[in-house]
Design a protein around this nucleic acid. Structure first.
Lengths: 155, 155
DNA sequence: TGACAAAAATAGCCTAGGCAATAAAATATG
DNA sequence: CATATTTTATTGCCTAGGCTATTTTTGTCA
């Protein structure tokens, strides 16, 4: 066969998977810009950890990483950054000397309390062109897709 | 105020923006795994460039980067990798001595032709739990969201 | 024309992501 | 109990992403 002149009958840029991947970067970038504008001095990923820590006191690094599907090594590095900024503290876990309990410092908690409302507002702005039914449907489809991909890759 | 014990009334992990961001990583990782299994020796991002090049002969680096919302510096690096593997070639652009025309080599074209069917099959597997109407709706919502975010961030 | 702004590609820097490897501690198993 | 396996955190390595220069051309416009 001579496929040298073959044209592929789909537009990769409009495929759902590429849309999602591109949108993920766009969202990350928008969040990063917002944090810079606020002078926050943390990355969106570090922010995500802080919010999670605000809701789960004394988490270990594994319990932070796994629900977010993040690499343990990366969690180590992001926590290093947050610790340098004085926003979190690692404490020994009395029940297991391999692991630590991660805590927000007072400064960390204040940081989250100060920034969270604005972050939620910005998210809301992104979804302005969408009514609640559409948003619900989007979330539902995304969850379905996430489950699909997790299954498909565990074969 | 004493928000130390305040609980935030939303679950960040289930928010649409975080779902999308996480799903983007999951998709990227699945694609990477597939390419490794096939012994392709390219990253998903490099693969994306190859597919785009297969459809647009003689593109400049800007014309590759902008539709994908990618940084020009990254395009340079990814093309370096593809060039080292002999899959693409940079040619001088006679009309503008600042830029290059990027071409697939014969090996590059063969590479895309060989791998593309399998890639499409794998994508199809990811979307198996979803009927066509759901898929269409998902794509539509994602496009709407992308437009929203691009607008919102250009204020 | 000649200075000046804009565009194309690139390099440098830092963080995230994902992988392999390692050290230390905990758990399982014969 | 002794040995092996698993788990937790960490480091090293490489690529992508996103920024800021920097260089070379091109385009503008006074």
């Amino acid at each position: 066969m001579s496929p040298k002149t073959m044209r592929y009958p789909y537009d990769p840029e409009q495929s759902a998977s590429n849309l999602i991947h591109r949108l993920g970067r766009l969202i990350r970038q928008g969040a990063a810009q917002y944090l810079v504008d606020q002078g926050a001095g943390v990355t969106p990923e570090q922010w995500g950890l802080l919010v999670k820590l605000a809701a789960s006191l004394g988490a270990t690094q594994v319990s932070l990483a796994d629900p977010l599907l993040k690499d343990h090594a990366n969690i180590t590095r992001m926590l290093d950054g947050l610790q340098r900024r004085g926003l979190i503290r690692r404490r020994p876990n009395p029940g297991d000397r391999r692991s630590h309990h991660i805590h927000l410092t007072d400064a960390g908690r204040e940081f989250v309390d100060d920034l969270l409302p604005g972050v939620l507002e910005q998210k809301a702005r992104w979804f302005e062109g969408m009514n609640q039914a559409q948003l619900d449907q989007l979330v539902e489809l995304l969850k379905l897709l996430e489950a699909n991909i997790r299954d498909a890759d565990n074969d």
